[in-house]
Amino acid sequence: MDRYADIIPDFESFKACLLTPQPHYIRVNTLKVTEQEVISKLEKLGFILQKVSFAKWFYEVIDTPGYSITHTLYHWLGWFYVQDIAPGLVSPILDPQEDELILDLAAAPGGKTTHIAQIMKNTGTIIANEPVTGRLRSLQANTHRMGVLNTIITQHNGIMFPDSGPFDRVLVDVPCSGEGRARETKSRRKGAEEGFIESISGTQKGLLRRAIQLTKPGGIIVYSTCTFAPEENEAVVNYALQNEPCEIVPIEMAENIPHSKGLIKWQGMEFDESLRYTIRIYPHQLDSGGMYIAKLRRL
């Protein structure tokens, strides 16, 4: 991770934070139940939960009765989804509206898909695509468990996704080096191999370009990763700005959500000035995993 010392603010706190356990959050599934009902049932079991002020339906799990919140009847029934707060910001930034046609280009295991369905109140249509057969199972299980009815699961290589829109909004949460999950997985703490970053960035560019092509003019695309590598983040979005008809839409974050701005240069590379309006979420700022999010408009 040392190669990020110049771009991550308060780098020593960042490194120290990676060694600490990541808090757990749940998103109450209002497609099935009310917030009050879930929280009351979980508190009776001995879980202590605290509402997250800036993220609708999210609660931090402050304490447990000695077992995981995923081992409860209410999780089994789909009353909530365990989702970190950083990826929990992505679907609200996409801002799907009721009755729209949405594409989630790389959807498994379904955290963001089910979040989008909840925001849309099970209306409209979500195409949740996942190319990897082994990951389809978790996507199907989670959409079923959460009572999602407005979603069609498809299996296509995202880069070659058929012309089937145009879509009102497209989420492209790409496969990435996953450095933002370093608090969950010890092996990720040293950072990703640069060779891997280079190879995966080609896939990411292809996916983002296809996402833009599938969006209707004026429609919205959200690009996200859970990594810190600028080659997978700003460099990919910069490439799309140069090659597809699109522009950056500034992400408006509430003041109480700690985050950093996107980079406009990195190791000799210069990016479009508008990339400063994309956002980086660092673990030591939000006490979460790491995330990069860019919002674009198709021209």
Binding site: D99, G124, Q140, T151, I153, T154, Q155, D163
Partner: peptide, 15 residues
């Protein structure tokens, strides 16, 4: 289901 549109030419796994 509650989806309003079924786009064509897609390999549907489940709906």
């Amino acid at each position: 289901a509650s989806f309003s549109i079924v786009p064509s030419d897609l390999r549907i796994v489940k709906a």
